[in-house]
Design a protein around this nucleic acid. Structure first.
Length: 600
RNA sequence: GCCUCCGUAGCUCAGUGGAUGAGAGCAGCGGGUUUCUACCCCGUCGGUCGCAGGUUCGAGUCCUGCCGGGGGCGCCA
């Protein structure tokens, strides 16, 4: 599958239901693995039977598999459920097991079992998350700003979602190749280079290095529309560029370098992993297009249509209901962006040997990418298990529910948005924690402001549009970045106040007595499952929901279970639980690309 | 016209085919606590899960058809 919601067939993680016992720190997964052979044994038809274990509100977990199995083999679901219970498979891990309703099995885990699982993840630097069973090569294509054009909110989502996916995939041990497919080639460069010459290189460089990319582009564009003489020069310049004229290439490189320096400033401020080493712009694929086109010719898929060379992948039609072509060479003989995308896929498949290619690109590109992938499959360059997936996303909307614009109706500069976030976060901290020094505040404001913007972007289903709202994203209540960061800071505060070094409590046994401790423990153990379900659909908001629920569970614990005032050994146990919580919080936030300050 | 995505509480959003309790936050109302950081907790108010069929032991979730909204649909990328 290659749709937006597509699921991957390759073993990204191993899966909680997998027979190789991955993600086993999660009691739900352990239970599932334990019951799978029991269910299969009870199925006298020889086929496998899924126990279908789910988290439950009525107990710690509910086993639903007896109902479908009873249907399948024609027996009584309650009796089947009872047989599962009688098998004794749960004796070691459950303190309470009951058959309920039409054949559900409610399972309550024994404290000893949960405590043992906690000890295991506390001793594990990976917090219970197993490395992937197979290391895949994953190419992630994201961010992709245009040279000599401003980065605006439209680039925020691709950059932030892509960065989170890079971090998660890397954490699982995959070989991740970041590709920033910048727009550094094409027709506009004639006018941009001519404008650069008109201004004088040094003056242009000064403006661009200050980040005035918009002004530069617009001035060039204005001249292009107004002045025929300029148009002519621009056209000639494009030809020179495409023919590899050395003087022109020098100017082009200058333009690209100035833009990249600016992009880098934005990336540093945003706190994403992209560097100059990840640049893989359109210009890089330019020399590969001829070869890609020739190979496509060799497949016999290409047909001439109205002077252009195209492929008709099945299933796509135009307004008139006729087959819709993907154009690889225009009537005038020029290669198209489909050709470039084709060269990209071939390069990633053959040179990089990518098992998986992720395209973090806006939803409007869905049909185009689907057509490209289909043609690559038809031509034999995208053969299972190798696959390409479009990780699409919706728009950032303003409070008028239209694509976010500045008051003047222009697109919002990303850098200005980030600066405003930091400023607003600084104001909030100054108000709520006046004792913090201005120096500390500046550092924390950056973490909180950027974290708030990123979290707001990541925490809703990527496929939908979302409404950008300063007040909501910076609130300390609700499903926000600051709320999660604050939970982390609170834990650090406990240790600071007590003068205890956090690693020193990591060997302390954790005893689960209060219900809030139990709930927190269950959540801590579910990190591998949360990560697994997140990557199953490349939906970072699922990991966000997990971290939020973890923070809520911690808050209930914090409220009901005094740590420092408790007597030993409860005090040590709670310190260990708090430390583990902070570690999981920080780890999960890191996977989202968000920092976890020690104080706020 | 065709394709595609979305539609869940006043608002912003979650929701793996599982239980005559569909959740969270915010907003509203009432109460409690004010302790390791600004918090948190309890109660309450709120829903024909866009509509109608279908599949299923079981549907917000899967299928079909409508309604409403966004996006895409030939030589830009």
């Amino acid at each position: 599958m290659t749709s937006d919601r597509g699921r991957v067939n390759v073993p990204l993680f191993g899966g909680v239901d997998g027979a190789d016992c991955r993600g086993m720190s999660d009691p739900i997964a352990t239970l599932s693995a334990l019951l799978a052979p029991v269910f299969t044994g009870l199925a006298d038809d020889g086929a496998e039977a899924d126990p279908t274990v789910r988290p439950s509100d009525r107990a710690d977990a509910q086993v639903n598999g007896a109902l479908p199995l009873a249907k399948r083999i024609g027996s009584n679901p309650r009796e089947l459920a009872q047989a599962v219970v009688d098998s004794g498979a749960l004796a070691d891990i459950a303190s309470d097991v009951e058959v309920a309703g039409p054949g559900f099995i409610n399972v309550t885990f024994s404290p000893a079992f949960l405590e043992a699982q906690l000890a295991e993840i506390a001793a594990d630097a990976r917090l219970g998350v197993p490395p992937a069973s197979e290391e895949l090569t994953v190419v992630i294509d994201y961010s992709a700003p245009n040279v000599a054009k401003e980065m605006h909110v439209g680039h925020l989502r691709s950059t932030v979602i892509g960065d989170a996916l890079v971090r998660m995939m890397s954490f699982l041990g995959h070989h991740v190749i970041r590709e920033n497919h910048i727009g550094d080639w094409g027709r506009p460069f004639g006018m941009l280079i001519e404008h650069l010459l008109d201004l004088g290189e040094d003056i242009a460089a000064e403006g661009l290095s200050q980040g005035d990319l918009d002004g530069f582009y617009k001035a060039a564009n204005a001249k292009f529309t107004d002045r025929e003489e300029f148009q002519e020069r621009a056209r000639e310049r494009v030809v020179l560029l495409q023919n590899g004229d050395e003087e022109t290439l020098v100017l082009w490189r200058r333009l690209v370098e100035l833009s990249n320096a600016y992009f880098d400033r934005v990336y540093r401020k945003l706190g994403v992993l992209l560097t100059d080493d990840d640049l893989a712009g359109e210009s890089r694929y330019q020399p590969l297009m001829e070869g890609a086109y020739e190979r496509l010719e060799g497949t016999g898929l290409l047909v001439e249509d109205d002077g252009a060379m195209v492929v008709f992948p099945p299933g796509f039609t135009n307004r008139e209901g006729d087959p819709l072509p993907l154009i690889f060479r225009s009537r005038t003989g020029a290669f198209m962006y489909a050709t470039s995308d084709l060269a990209c896929v071939i390069d990633r498949a053959e040179r990089l040997d990518a098992d998986l290619m992720l395209y973090v690109v806006g939803s409007p590109q869905a049909q185009h990418l689907q057509m490209v992938y289909d043609v690559c499959k038809m031509a034999g360059w995208l053969v299972e298990p190798r696959q390409a997936i479009h990780v699409g996303f919706g728009n950032v909307l303003g409070d008028d529910r239209k694509i976010m614009r500045s008051r003047a109706g222009k697109s919002v500069k990303l850098i200005e948005l980030l600066d405003e976030a930091i400023e607003r976060a600084g104001d909030a901290i100054a108000e709520k924690n006046p004792e913090m020094s201005p120096g500390d505040r500046a550092v924390v404001a950056e973490m909180v402001g950027i974290g708030a913007v990123k979290y707001a972007d990541l925490s809703t289903d990527r496929i939908k549009d979302y409404v950008f709202d300063w007040d909501r994203m910076l609130a300390f209540e609700g499903n926000t970045g600051p709320y999660l960061q604050y939970a982390h800071a609170r834990i650090c505060s406990i240790f600071r106040r007590a003068g205890i070094d956090r690693p020193s409590v990591r060997d302390s046994p954790i005893a689960l007595a209060e219900p809030q401790e139990r709930a927190l423990a269950m959540r801590l153990l579910a990190l591998p499952t949360a990560l697994d379900t997140t990557l199953d659909s490349y939906s970072p908001h699922k990991l966000c929901t997990y971290v939020y629920e973890l923070a809520v569970d911690f808050s209930a614990f914090y409220e009901n279970c005094p740590v420092l005032k408790a007597d030993e050994p409860t005090r040590s146990s709670r310190l260990a639980l708090a430390d583990l919580t902070a570690r999981v919080l920080a780890q999960a936030l890191d996977l989202l690309g968000i920092e976890a300050p020690e104080q706020m």
